[in-house]
């Protein structure tokens, strides 16, 4: 497991190469990349997104989420990168990369990690346009996405 919070951009291809280097036991690799979507704030286009986090707790929360996924599925490797600071529309925000023997575990764990990251890891987004700034509000839909993992556990 490897978790990184960084300002710099990341390269999914490089991360895959690093994860698979020297290994022939990986049968499936699932990846998710979140991007800054162009949007409007009132009548203005968003110029940038400001990503804030809680240093210390963020790393701990992400490590716990990945550990929960590793307990639930047989995973071979997990890489999470989340960017912070000022990001422009079209830029990458987050990468989740999961390697497993078979695709079922890789797909499911990748989605599980993202669902928990969105609702449990202490990151906050602020949309900034020329004259306005607005903190993004949490969506009930994200909280509901967790429900199915909890229902599936019963």
């Amino acid at each position: 497991m490897s978790v990184t919070i960084q300002v710099a951009d990341f390269d999914c291809g490089q991360e895959i190469a690093a994860m698979t280097k020297g290994r022939d036991d990986i049968g499936a690799l699932a990846s998710f990349i979140g991007l800054v979507r162009a949007d409007t704030l009132g009548t203005e286009n968003i110029d940038s997104m400001q990503l804030e986090h809680y240093p210390g707790m963020t790393e701990k929360a992400l490590a716990e989420i990945v550990a929960a996924a590793e307990k639930r599925w047989m995973l071979q490797s997990v890489r999470v990168i989340h960017r912070v600071g000022k990001l422009l529309p079209g830029e990458q925000i987050v990468l989740v990369l999961v390697a497993a023997s078979h695709r079922g575990a890789a797909f499911a764990a990748c989605e599980f990690i993202m669902d928990f990251l969105k609702t449990r890891a202490p990151f906050w987004k602020k949309e900034v346009s020329e004259h306005y700034g607005q903190w993004v509000e949490a969506r009930d839909k994200d909280e509901m996405a967790l429900q199915r993992w909890q229902d599936a556990e019963k």
Binding site: G34, L51, H53, Y54, M57, H82, I93, V94, M114, L117, K118, T119, R120, A121, P122, F123, W124, K125, W135, V136, E137, A138
Partner: peptide, 10 residues
């Protein structure tokens, strides 16, 4: 102890 709004990462 930290206080904050619901998180909105990802």
């Amino acid at each position: 102890v930290a206080f904050f709004p619901p998180v909105t990462g990802g």
